[in-house]
């Protein structure tokens, strides 16, 4: 079969207007179904003619999955809310700034206008071996091309590898982990996941990035008020100022008491097949002032257990430096 790209293969399109119907349609479609949210990840797969679902379930018409709902304990954001809406939302900006900042760092304005929060956190990895349609482990094959001795793996992982060395590309994912957000999944049973548990590594299932299995739909993201108005830090290192995914990014929330870090949540992305929450670093900084020595210790602790592939040793120092900077951001 000869290689062909750039034309979307035919599919049937269904456009449900309620979560219930969407889940129902997904169940019917099973493995042959595909959920279309913002479409930025989807159309890439389709245009490369690698993913060829028979049925595409466009969830863009489900109003209950859009927008913000203020709740006593926090704010609920529909998974289909666009990243622009997230970045511009007054309460998100004022109370959960790290999420707004992360959303602002996604790709480009047009992508943010169309891309959704749910899509951003649920998107597939951009490992170029995998995305080229090569039959790697993640694609159901029996090899990881990206970790071969001479492979091109500058943008691959330094942590959490298990046969697959891809990284999670999401900008908002680490921010949501820093905010201790909860993911609401409907299938049709409704489940709640802590943000960091929503993402899974290849050792759990090498073909998926998140807990979502066929038939599961991420409907809302709930951001609890607990971390509202904390001191936030977000930084994303990338090659170009636009479009590019992170090389390494960090998102952090600090609750301060004077110059002492009372509590912290720190997550990095671009370093593992899933966004990594740095619990050990959080424990280290808790109850301390963000002195230079603490910044350095946090950085060093963060990179414990990292292991570079041929081309991505730099990520270790970049990750260390970003964690340092995150802690430095609350220095007196």
């Amino acid at each position: 079969m000869a290689n062909m790209k750039d034309m979307i293969p035919a599919f049937d399109l269904v456009q449900p207007t309620t979560v219930e119907d969407a889940v129902d349609l997904m169940k019917d479609a099973g493995d042959e179904g595909w959920v279309l949210a913002g479409g930025l990840d989807t159309f890439d797969w389709f245009k490369d003619r690698i993913k060829r679902p028979r049925v595409v379930i466009d969830i863009g018409g489900i109003e209950e999955m859009r927008g913000f709902r203020d709740e006593a304990g926090g704010i609920e954001i529909g998974a289909m809310t666009t990243l622009t809406e997230v970045a511009n939302h007054a309460r998100v900006r004022s109370e959960f700034g790290v999420l707004a900042t992360a959303a602002e760092h996604v790709a480009t304005p047009q992508i943010r206008n169309q891309g959704t929060l749910g899509g951003n956190i649920t998107q597939d990895t951009r490992c170029w071996y995998y995305r080229s349609g090569w039959p790697c482990y993640r694609a159901g094959g029996n090899v990881c091309y990206a970790s071969a001795p001479l492979a091109m793996n500058r943008e691959h992982c330094i942590l959490g590898r298990s046969r697959c060395v891809a990284v999670n590309p999401s900008d908002t994912a680490p921010a949501l982990i820093a905010l201790d957000a909860k993911m609401v999944v409907q299938s049709p049973r409704r489940r709640l996941y802590d943000a960091e548990d929503y993402f899974i590594g290849p050792s759990v299932d090498i073909t998926r990035m998140t807990v979502l299995e066929p038939g599961d739909l991420l409907t809302q993201v709930f951001v609890p008020a607990f971390w509202a108005n904390s001191n936030f830090y977000f930084e994303k290192v990338r090659d170009r100022g636009s479009w590019d995914f992170q090389l390494v990014s960090v998102a952090a929330a600090f609750r301060m008491s004077g110059s002492t870090i009372e509590d912290a949540r720190i997550a990095v992305n671009g370093v593992a097949p899933y966004p990594v929450r740095l619990d050990a670093v959080e424990r280290l900084v808790r109850g301390e002032a963000a002195s230079e020595s603490l910044q350095n210790a946090a950085g060093e602790l963060a990179i414990q257990g990292t292991r570079a592939l041929r081309h991505n040793d730099y990520k270790i120092v970049m990750m260390r430096n970003l964690v340092r900077r995150a802690v430095r951001s609350v220095a007196a």
Partner: peptide, 11 residues
């Protein structure tokens, strides 16, 4: 499956 060169291979 197809290998990266489009050749049919056993996996």
């Amino acid at each position: 499956d197809q290998n990266p060169w489009g050749q049919d291979i056993l996996i």
